[in-house]
Computed example of a mutant assay.
Amino acid sequence: MTVKVSHTAEIQSLFNEAAGLNNDQGSPRAKQILLRLINDVAKIIEDLEITDDEFWHSVDYLNRLGARSEAGLLVPGLGLEHFIDILQDAKDAQLGLTGGTPRTIEGPLYVAGAPIAEGEVRMDDGTELDHATVMFLDGVVRDTDGKPIAGAVVDVWQANTKGNYSYFDQSQSEYNLRRRIVTDAEGRYRARSIVPSGYGCAPDGPTQECLNLLGRHGQRPAHIHFFISAPGHRHLTTQINLSGEEYLWDDFAYATRDGLVGDIKFVEDVAAAHDRGVEGERFAEMQFNFELQKAPAAQAEQRSNRPRALQQA
């Protein structure tokens, strides 16, 4: 027989006290959120008859999750970051804010302050050219009326051939595979990079531990992240997943969306490679254009204040 006491006056008084409702200090918003969270956790404990062992193993799991800095990895893995995107899509539709390139999850691996250049950049440091495939990425940033946007900033970051990101992977050079590109007068950006690799959660980490309990894998297809911004336009957080990838529509982080698949083409032509400054005969090309909505307010031009690496940059 399930015993429930969370609704009683005694317990509600306890939770109100714990959430700071009995004082005038602190943050009213934090109190509101924590009171709801405490009550919801209490109801889970009651409704699912959580045992003491299950409760304290969960507490230990949260400790280990934080120690490995994997909370930002587990959140998309549980569909919550994708849910926030879908919720914002619904709010936009209600306000009549439609069109433009779809948003999708940011993920936890952005680093602020990447080198910035006009029109065209090289993203990789050349250390993987003995086995990497050179990739040429280009496109145009337009508004929803099809007009090119000059001076837009294309902030792009990606993994290397091992599925690792600079800064978090100390073996890579500073800002390797991270750049900001200012679009030219025709709204165009160009980048020489390398084809990134997909990757998976660390097999010994707490995120994969949770996924194992759910019978799920922790793999992502190869992809490239973008922030796109321009005065008078809504900031766009998105990423393109590369066509042909095994996990393209089975991304554990739920980032793949219609309209966000990059059609990568591999070329094997010695003369064409030579013309593009590539040794050997094989390289890849991918074109991807972006459309930005008009900003309904100045605040919409800025990305969220989510804590990020080198936030001060």
Rank of each mutant, 00 (worst) to 15 (best):
D89N: 10
G262C: 03
T144Y: 08
N22R: 07
I105Y: 15
V261C: 06
I45A: 05
E46T: 05
A313W: 03
L236H: 09
A90K: 09
M286W: 09
E291Y: 07
H217M: 03
F266C: 05
N289M: 07
N305G: 00
S171Q: 05
F252W: 14
R303G: 05
D124P: 03
D92V: 02
A117T: 01
E246A: 11
S243D: 14
F136W: 06
V156C: 09
F136H: 03
D155Q: 08
G259L: 07
R276V: 02
I240F: 09
K91Q: 14
T237C: 11
D47S: 10
E54I: 07
E17K: 12
L73T: 06
Q311W: 10
R257L: 15
I228H: 06
C201R: 02
Q239H: 15
A273L: 03
E46W: 06
S193L: 01
E285L: 12
D184W: 15
G113C: 13
M123F: 01
Q293G: 06
E46L: 05
L109K: 02
D143I: 06
I50C: 02
A185N: 00
L37K: 02
A112F: 00
G113K: 15
I38L: 13
P196A: 11
L211N: 12
T8A: 01
R216H: 06
F290K: 14
A230W: 14
P148W: 14
G126C: 12
G107N: 09
